[in-house]
Design a protein around this nucleic acid. Structure first.
Length: 412
RNA sequence: GGACAGAUGGGUGAGUUGGCUGAAACCACAUCCCUGCUAAGGAUGCGUACUCGUAAGGGUACCGAGGGUUCGAAUCCCUCUCUGUCCGCCA
């Protein structure tokens, strides 16, 4: 959620910043007008209520003293009608404002490059060099290892579901355990959370109300399958006021993630790149505004080092404004090298949402006497499925077998 | 799923013959005083949001959520949600 005061006081600069996120300026203008209007109406209502309250108190006193109440009662009745009317007006405005405010995306950081789409993202650096093969490397679905069973995944559920078998299943489990241990050493505490979340939770992190179509909803319940562990883990502290001394809170969480992938029909239909269900180890941090840049760096480093430790060549990509997600002020994607596809592909995404989610979810910390909004950050440690196939493709040998990265061997 | 019970501030927990209760008391917490240290003791402060004000300090709303009755509701009525206990079922 946008800071409404910022919109009221600094309209032009907010507009300018949201222009690269393709936000309709009329909507912002509407939001500003609405909020100013609401403020005024609210003031009127409160003044009415104050008068009404004062008179109402008199009523009790009069009654006790045996004074005549008739006239006062009529006066109060008049107030009542006025406040009811004013109150109804305020509620309407509140509803309208909420409706708009809830779908306006976050403001990009100043260092986010302008740009339209993924083609305008900026490569910050490359880590490790892609392996050189003396044969033509295969794509993971062509490696005949009997690790991935696409057909039976479809049989059990539908397309974009995959069954892991044998060392494939084992490797996925090894990766999860390895990542959690790796993150723990970097100071991230492990949590395990529900895979179903309610509306408030999904609102808090920004999936609702705008992206309901991307979520699997449980029939007959007001619950959704989580699209990422970011949702429950960040919301752990919804409606709470944290002790400043407990910050930053740094957590890591393994979960399954469920996405409808609406709008990506036809894309990555082969293989395990794009699934309706996938495993991911996530990093989530809750910080003070002062700490958030440093924590962002350490999350990024953590994810990048993890890839390095697995011997996987990757690059850091600073997302441009147009490619930035709804809640993110800044995002750096990690893309890993896929020899079979001969290109880098996203495997991790680290975002700072600043106070955007905090305002929605009302996550605050006490700073002396003041309660302030925290900053929330999230990032994939790594997507497990994509890491698995990255290992398959990068560690493949001429005979079709696949090596296991050294650090994972104790976990197999 | 069946039968009861309950939902009040960081916690415990008063308040349910409607006004003096945004909320007692205790605990926790913060600052200060006292004590050689510790323990104990004393004083003061201590919900959230919005809003007016340089500030001190005001105003409004909130006692699970939403609606209703009333001049006035934490207190009465309705709906919903959640929690607890017992029974059934179950990893």
């Amino acid at each position: 959620m946008l800071d409404i005061k910022l919109l009221q006081n600094d309209f032009e600069s907010v507009c300018a910043k949201l222009r690269i996120k393709k936000v309709d300026e009329n909507l912002l203008e509407q939001m500003r007008t609405l909020s100013l209007n609401l403020k005024e109406k609210r003031k009127e209502l409160e003044e009415l209520q104050a008068k009404q309250n004062a008179k109402s108190k008199l009523f009790g006193v009069y009654a006790k003293e045996g004074k005549d109440i008739k006239e006062l009662q009529e006066e109060l009745f008049g107030y009542k009608q006025q406040t009811n009317l004013a109150n109804a007006g305020v509620k309407v405005l509140e509803g309208e404002l909420e409706k708009i405010a809830s779908i306006i995306p976050n403001i990009p950081d100043p260092d986010v490059p302008a740009g339209k789409d993924e083609n305008d993202n900026v490569e910050l650096k490359k880590v490790l060099t892609p392996p050189v093969f003396d044969f033509v490397p295969k794509e993971h679905w062509d490696l005949s290892l009997d690790w991935l069973d696409f057909e039976r995944g479809v049989k059990l559920a539908k397309s974009r579901f995959t069954v892991l078998k044998n060392d494939g299943a084992k490797l996925a489990r090894a990766l999860i355990n390895y990542m959690l241990d790796f993150n723990a050493k970097r100071g991230f505490r492990e949590v395990s959370v529900p895979y179903l979340a309610n509306r408030e939770t999904l609102y808090g992190t920004g999936q609702l109300p705008k992206f309901e179509n991307d979520l699997f909803k449980i029939d007959g319940e007001d619950l959704f399958l989580i699209p990422t562990a970011e949702v429950p883990v960040t919301n752990l502290f919804r409606d709470e006021i944290l002790d400043i001394n407990d910050l930053p809170l740094m957590m890591t969480c393994y979960s399954e993630c469920f996405r409808k992938e609406a709008g990506s029909a036809g894309r990555d239909t082969r293989g395990m790149i794009r699934q309706h269900q996938f495993s991911k180890v996530e990093l989530v941090s809750i910080t003070t505004p002062q700490q958030s840049d440093a924590v962002f760096e350490s999350m990024l480093t953590c994810a990048s080092d993890l890839l390095t430790s697995l011997g996987l060549a990757h690059r850091h990509l600073l997302l441009c404004g147009g490619d930035l997600g709804f809640g993110a002020a800044k995002t750096i994607d990690l893309e890993v090298w896929f020899p079979g596809q001969n290109r880098y592909r996203e495997i991790s995404s680290i975002s700072n949402t600043r106070d955007f989610q905090a305002r929605r979810a009302m996550i605050r910390y006490r700073d002396g006497k003041k309660n302030r909004l925290v900053h929330t950050l999230n990032g994939s440690s790594l997507a497990v499925g994509r890491t698995l196939i990255a290992i398959m493709e990068n560690y493949q040998k001429a005979d079709g077998s696949v090596g296991i990265p050294e650090v994972l061997q104790p976990y197999m």
